[in-house]
């Protein structure tokens, strides 16, 4: 299957070919790849793509999956409307 047709990050529409291009250029951590391709920066916050990217990196580096650190987890746990936060502070 064409790597361009394998979607890794649905929120930001990133495919496997783009990931492999960066791996070949020496960007081999999730934090590096996240910043250049926006993987994991969309509404799901990497809940789907994070593990897929971790697997791809471990395959590329020929190391165990758990040896590839996941991206730092940041708040919020789920999307909240700004006006709901304003209401909540009243």
């Amino acid at each position: 299957m064409n790597k361009k047709n394998i979607i890794i990050c649905r929120c930001e529409d990133v495919n496997l070919e783009q990931v492999h291009e960066l791996l070949d250029q020496g960007y081999t951590t999730i934090e590096d790849i996240k910043r250049l391709l926006r993987i994991g920066m969309g509404p799901c916050q990497g809940k789907t793509c994070g593990l897929l990217l971790q697997q791809e990196i471990s395959r590329y580096l020929k190391c165990k999956t758990e040896e590839v650190p996941l991206a730092k987890v940041r708040p919020l746990v789920t999307g909240v409307k700004l006006k709901a936060i304003v209401e909540g502070t009243k």
Partner: peptide, 18 residues
């Protein structure tokens, strides 16, 4: 949230994701 919604009220409709 309070500051931005006071200046740009429509932005209140958007979800904070991170």
């Amino acid at each position: 949230a309070k500051t931005v919604v006071s200046f740009l009220p429509i932005i209140g409709e958007l979800r904070v994701i991170r």
